[in-house]
């Protein structure tokens, strides 16, 4: 099954070329030019992974990461950045980023991280379902 990815970057040229190359590798890609636009898309659709630029006009990557993780903690977010300082990487990981890649990123490495992110998301969803079932059984004496 193909991975469904939301790609977020303020550079339209980057979105176009990346989505074309990712789709050629069997992924289903949707794009957003800002974090605000991404949040609106996320209200309606679910994704296996979000690949997002760290610095964007308006809401930046860290703020967007916090907002997404508050609303949908199971979502896997891979951040792309021009310069990955140790400080920023630690901050992003603490908030819940799955991974952080430096631009220009190697597409094969990114594709591998997306696959891994999908597997991790599935585990989280399974765990959530299991917890729900356990809770129902507990409450109704199963």
């Amino acid at each position: 099954m193909s991975e469904k990815v939301l790609l977020v970057d303020d550079e339209k040229d980057f979105l176009d070329i990346m989505s074309e190359r990712m789709e050629a590798r069997g992924m289903t890609v949707k794009t957003a030019e800002s974090a605000d636009q991404a949040l609106k898309i996320l209200e309606k659709e679910s994704f296996d992974a979000i690949v997002m630029d760290f610095k964007m006009p308006g809401m930046d990557g860290i703020q967007a990461l916090k907002n997404i993780k508050t609303r949908k903690p199971e979502l896997q977010i891979i951040l792309l950045t021009g310069y990955a300082t140790v400080e920023k990487t630690v901050e992003a990981m603490k908030i819940g980023a799955t991974d952080l890649l430096e631009k220009p990123a190697d597409l094969e490495a990114l594709a591998a991280k997306i696959k891994q992110a999908k597997a991790e998301k599935m585990l989280l969803v399974e765990k959530k379902t299991e917890d729900k079932i356990k809770d129902i059984l507990k409450r109704f004496g199963g």
């Binding site: 550079e11 040229d13 980057f14 021009g82 310069y83 220009p104």
Partner: peptide
Amino acid sequence: KNCLAIINEN
């Protein structure tokens, strides 16, 4: 860097 990233993808 953004520019280089797009050149890289092309």
